[in-house]
């Protein structure tokens, strides 16, 4: 496997396309995270909140996105991870995770990261600073 330290500016990590978002994904995340806000799991609660359907936890998408970096944990770790939540993620959305290297400063590699939906719209975006050992 390619090492992260070999990457050049403007290079991308291999993107990951997730399976369509399912209710079970969100029930599992609710259980694992302790976030039981019903707008993420129960149709009636979502519609009472004025939503067209249940939406993914923003933190579910953010949690997914950092797995682009898990293969490189022998080389370094996620030192900084900043995300802005831009759009809602609905059931059956197909999310693609992306990371692009924008800066190398000594041991710290800065990536622009984003998750996009099937329409190419950014749902979350931000920065990961990966610190090499």
């Amino acid at each position: 496997m390619k090492t992260l330290s070999e990457l050049q500016i403007a290079a991308s990590l291999d993107p990951i396309q997730l399976e369509p978002v399912s209710r079970l994904d969100l029930i599992k995340y609710a259980g694992a995270s302790g976030d039981y806000n019903p707008i993420h799991t129960i149709d009636e609660a979502a519609s009472e909140a004025g939503l067209s359907g249940i939406i993914a936890h923003g933190m579910w998408t953010m949690g997914n996105l950092s797995k682009l970096f898990s293969p490189f944990l022998e080389e370094g770790f996620v030192q900084d991870y900043t995300i802005r939540f831009a759009r809602m993620v609905y059931l059956n959305d197909v999310i693609t995770l992306k990371a692009n290297l924008v800066e190398k400063a000594g041991e710290v590699f800065t990536f622009k990261v984003a998750a996009e939906n099937q329409d190419g719209k950014v749902v979350i975006s931000g920065v990961i600073k990966f610190k090499l050992y």
Partner: peptide
């Protein structure tokens, strides 16, 4: 109790 919007989230780690 409801309607809170999560706008941004930031983490900084010294180590995992």
């Amino acid at each position: 109790k409801s309607g809170l919007i999560h706008g941004e989230q930031r983490y900084h780690y010294e180590r995992p």
